[in-house]
Write a protein that binds this DNA or RNA. Structure first.
Length: 637
RNA sequence: GCUCCUAUAGUUAAAUGGUAUAACGUGUCCAUGGUAAGGAUAAAUUUCAAGUUCGAUUCUUGAUGGGAGCACCA
């Protein structure tokens, strides 16, 4: 006689075993129609799961995340079913729910084409229209393994072998012809899925995510509760495409890439201006924070990289170069060894610590070709790097100071939403475990002290120490990993760094590695996408454009432009033979924040009429007051 | 690096087994203008290498670059 408690506190009494469907029916007809899945004492179950004892039940619809997830999961199953119907001999592997949708990995000799996706979509639609019923069975391990082997599904058989003995093996049947090994739960029938899904792309993916394994074909889909949500999602993708920094970089004449040097940026004047502005800004902030800026060579003898451990642990990513007399040098992939060499000049005392040395160092890393992606992943980039030499006692405090600096800088650039990722020791590493213990606990303590949200990534630290990464959220809700802070008990010792402590004994300092933007190149890519190319006035690479209404006012326009430049802002004057409308359109599309129009009225009153980007309001002001108020805007407070 | 897709004026695209078309941009000329495209005209293009073919920009193979993922990662 189960008594079912509902989320609103009410209870329902039943005379005998009861299913989720019956409970929903008892609550209301409309809930029965909308019900997708339920939780029984917090555990998600199929709606036809039979309940025989008292428990609390919650029924989910497409409005709940749980409901949406099961819709996506079922869509993945129906997709696999459609694929196997259309392409016999295709093996199924795994098909999980992911953000915004799902995918399923298949093993098949022939490749899936875009046309195939359309055919699969159509077949899925037909299966959904047929509203085939779902049925769950529990199988014996051995039966399951031999069954899947027999029908040629060797991947499924392998999956079963890796499932712990203690777990129940459930098989879901969709209709009479198709079944899949799955943990579930699933919808009652295929009709519940609805039609708000779309297969989006097909690509390769390694079996079990391991690049040593064979490659499968992965079909991605997006799935939603209703048509509107699907459209909204597709619109969001379109919006993101409009902001693509590779597209905007070309349109706005910021940079380009070319075959001769894949993954290295050719900065154009405007892009380079942006780059330099960020460096100027960082320099100012770091000066205040007590950093000493240095610069070290880009090409260094291989012996240094052997000593530091880079050649051994990072060698696959390093460029080396041989001189005419057969000496081998490496192009630096990181700035740290060079920085330690600077630290090593002259005797250091404990009184010098913490010693903060910054470097805008250009590093080269031979990244796999498939990883390259515009400015976001390049082979040559400039780090806003710094190394802080300190004692063990100072680590936590220094980490906190760094974190605050990072947050302040992100905020100035328009990013207020920051989370942390903490990564501990990787498999491939230098240094003893007790040293790692110390480094990890000191850094984790600092992470906790920031009171920011953080996640832990096991085994993803640098080869010389644990790290935290700073992830910021942009204007359209995407997360970007930028800054990093790493605690290093290893490299200073390897490269012979030391300081004289209070007791007169030489000791090895701890080194903190930190970068705030991470890579200037990457950060600029993120900035472009965040602002859709419409930069805040102070970092905009072309801040103002002066437009005379006709040739008659060229002299005045030139004078205005000169005055703006003399006040430290950038300005150009458009003397071309086009009409005003044309010029306004052209420079608005070029995303110049301020246009200054000069005609008779302005000449007579020594004023300018300004037009701000994305506004058609005309603001007339005296030239002097323009210069004054906009110079103030030209720096962050 | 792996799988799939892809490569045409400066840019975005179109077309074809007989060397290519449009728009924007650029140059020149006319129009001298008040807040998102005034008019005319000219110049400019098939990634590279092999193969098939009488003939390849088009078909095939390879290389290189680019794209979507995977793996790797700032």
């Amino acid at each position: 006689m189960p008594i079912i408690s509902l989320p609103d506190g009410k209870t329902l009494n039943f005379q005998k075993e009861v299913t989720g469907l019956e409970i929903a029916d008892k609550i209301s007809k409309s809930l029965l129609k909308q019900a997708l899945i339920m939780s029984v004492d917090g555990q998600l179950k199929d709606l036809y799961f039979s309940i025989d004892k008292d428990c609390s039940v919650k029924i989910f619809t497409s409005k709940d995340p749980e409901g949406l997830e099961v819709i996506r999961h079922d869509t993945a199953h129906i997709m696999a079913m459609a694929v196997q119907e259309l392409y016999p001999g295709t093996q199924v592997t795994i098909g999980p729910v992911i953000k915004n949708g799902f995918y399923y990995d298949f093993a098949r000799k022939e490749t899936f084409t875009e046309d195939d996706l359309k055919k699969i979509e159509k077949r899925m639609s037909e299966i959904i229209d047929k509203d085939v019923k779902t049925r769950r069975e529990v199988w014996e391990r051995d039966k399951a393994i031999s069954h899947f082997k027999k029908i040629g599904e060797k991947y499924k058989a392998e999956i079963i072998k890796s499932i712990p003995e203690s777990e129940e093996l459930s098989i879901y049947h969709h209709g009479d012809t198709w079944h899949d090994l799955c943990r579930g739960p699933h919808l009652v029938s295929s009709g519940k899925i609805g039609k708000a899904f779309k297969l989006t792309k097909v690509s390769g993916a390694y079996w079990r995510g391991d690049s040593n394994n064979e490659m499968l074909q992965r079909i991605y889909g997006t799935g939603w509760a209703n048509q509107k949500d699907l459209e909204d999602h597709l619109n969001r993708i379109e919006e993101a495409e409009k902001r693509d920094h590779r597209k905007l970089g070309k349109e706005m004449d910021l940079f380009h890439f070319r075959e001769e040097s894949p993954g290295s940026v050719f900065w154009h004047e405007k892009g380079w201006t942006l780059f330099q502005k960020l460096i100027d800004y960082m320099r100012m902030k770091q000066n205040i924070a007590g950093y000493k800026e240095i610069n070290t060579p880009e090409v260094l003898d291989r012996s240094l990289w052997e000593k530091s451990g880079h050649l051994e642990k990072f060698g696959e990513n390093m460029y080396t170069t041989t001189t005419p007399d057969e000496k081998i040098f490496a192009v630096k992939p990181m700035n740290c060894p060079g920085c330690i060499e600077v630290f090593n000049q002259g005797l250091k005392s404990y009184k010098d610590l913490p010693l903060k040395m910054s470097e805008f160092g250009k590093v080269h890393r031979y990244e796999p070709s498939g990883a390259l992606h515009g400015l976001l992943r390049v082979r040559a980039f400039t780090q806003d790097d710094a190394h802080i030499f300190c004692t063990e006692d100072q680590i936590t405090q220094e980490c906190l100071i760094v974190t605050n600096l990072i947050l302040e800088i992100y905020k100035d650039l328009g990013f207020e939403n920051v989370i942390l990722k903490y990564s501990d020791r990787p498999e491939l590493r230098v240094g003893d475990d007790d040293v790692w213990d110390k480094a990890e606990s000191a850094l984790l303590e600092a992470v906790k002290a920031t009171k920011l949200e953080y996640s832990i990534n096991k085994g993803e630290g640098a080869f010389y120490g644990p790290k935290i990464e700073f992830v910021l959220r942009d204007a359209i809700g995407r997360d970007w990993q930028c800054g990093t802070l790493q605690v290093d008990f290893n490299l200073p010792g390897r490269l012979g760094a030391s300081y004289v402590d209070r007791d007169g004994v030489k000791k090895v300092p701890v080194m903190l590695h930190r970068a705030l933007f991470g890579s200037l190149e990457r950060f600029i890519g993120i900035l472009i996408e965040n602002y859709a190319g419409k930069f805040p006035f102070w970092i905009s690479p072309s801040q103002t454009m002066v437009i005379p209404i006709s040739e008659e006012f060229n002299d005045y326009a030139i004078k205005v432009c000169e005055k703006i430049k003399n006040s430290g802002m950038s300005s150009s004057v458009d003397l071309k033979n086009n009409n005003l409308n044309y010029k306004i359109r052209e420079h608005s599309l070029a995303k110049i924040p301020i246009l200054l129009i000069c005609g008779k009225k302005e000449v007579d009153s020594k004023s300018v009429t300004i037009r701000r980007l994305d506004s058609n309001k005309q603001e007339n002001m005296k030239l002097d007051s323009f210069l004054k108020s906009f110079s103030a805007l030209n720096k962050v407070s």
